[in-house]
């Protein structure tokens, strides 16, 4: 994990097949870069900020999703709803002040996912099933509480998350901090290493004396916290929130995680890879916009790229 080359390109060329795949992968990246930089207007500041903005909202959720995928729990379908719920909590508690509201929103995200992580960790319940149950419970409860209405800021102050520091949008800063924290936890704490161990071989991890249940719960709590960050940023950007806010973010997030090269089976991957995945997808989207492709073509091409990258990774694993 420490070697930077294996971090970015898993299975650094040791068989012919892997070498070929590596060449294709590098060629693809170079082609993408060339295609991107030959696009008129890509280097201008506005499109750079458009790219940063496009990255940060999905990026935070994707960083959270990375922990779930890494521990071998595939994906959660409830992170989008957690994001929306955290946004509602943030907007409704703004009367207490911006920072308490922010903390409450993060706490909300952590609690929601900690409960799921507990059931999944201790009872080994199926993660996808639990996340679908959580999704239904979150959507239903939120609709009852808000009676289906959009929630508007209870007090001013959320605009602070829309401002820029030295020209860089705050949301992008939050995303970079999220990536940094995520990768630090993963690489330099006991919990992070244990997560990778559990993902690659849960029984061995248990036999080695890891408290697997607790570690899985922590992975879920991190996912909830990072999704909640995205919820706060999004609600500040739109100035209102409802449960539609995070709809579809789960799929985009897992797409970014897989494009980055984190294994769907768990045990191999990193937050940096997810950052790369998010960047690739966002770069493609921005280039497509600049080249005047319609929204529709963007959806299609993004889908095809996700599919292609997943195939390429599978070939690269050489199984």
């Amino acid at each position: 994990m420490s070697n930077i080359s294996t971090l970015i390109w898993p299975g650094f060329a040791d068989t012919t097949r892997r070498r070929v795949v590596l060449v294709i992968r590098l060629g693809g990246l170079l082609g993408l870069a060339g295609w991107a930089f030959s696009t008129p207007g890509i280097i201008s500041l506005p499109s750079f900020f458009a790219l940063l903005n496009a990255i940060s909202f999905i990026g935070c959720v994707a960083v959270g999703m990375t922990f779930i995928t890494l521990t071998g729990n595939i994906m959660s379908l409830a992170l989008g709803a957690t994001l929306s719920g955290a946004a509602l909590v943030f907007l409704a508690t703004l009367t207490l002040g911006v920072i308490p509201a922010f903390i409450l929103a993060i706490l909300f995200g952590i609690i929601i996912t900690a409960l799921q992580g507990a059931v999944i960790g201790w009872l080994k319940a199926n993660p996808i099933l639990v996340s679908i149950a959580a999704l239904a419970l979150l959507l239903g409860t939120a609709q009852i509480v808000t009676s289906g209405q959009s929630v508007y800021p209870a007090a001013p102050g959320s605009e602070i998350f829309k401002t820029r520091i030295a020209g860089i949008p705050i949301s992008a800063l939050f995303f970079f901090v999220t990536v940094a924290i995520g990768q630090l936890i993963l690489s330099y704490t006991r919990y992070g290493l244990a997560m990778i161990m559990i993902g690659s071989n849960p029984r061995a991890a248990e036999a080695a004396g890891f408290r697997t249940a607790r570690i899985i719960m922590v992975a879920y709590m991190l996912a909830g916290a990072f999704s909640a960050v995205s919820g706060v940023l999004l609600s500040a950007r739109y100035g209102s929130g409802d449960m539609e806010l995070g709809a579809g973010y789960d799929y985009n997030a897992i797409g970014a995680v897989l494009v980055g090269g984190t294994s769907i089976e768990g045990g191999s991957g990193s937050v940096i890879r997810t950052l790369i995945g998010v960047t690739i997808i966002a770069l493609v989207e921005v280039v497509l916009i600049l080249r005047g492709f319609s929204d529709q073509m963007q959806y299609l091409i993004t889908g095809l790229i996700v599919l292609a990258v997943i195939l390429l990774h599978a070939l690269g694993e050489g199984r």
Binding site: I74, M75, Y251, I254, G255, L258, I264, E265, S294, D295, Q296, M297, Q298, Y299, L300, I301, T302, G303, L304, V306, L307, A308, I310, L311, A314
Partner: peptide, 20 residues
Amino acid sequence: ISSVGVTLGGLLTLQGMTYV
């Protein structure tokens, strides 16, 4: 390859085709 990865790509692609 595991089906989740492939069909996720499939889902996004099919949705894109529908939009187009």
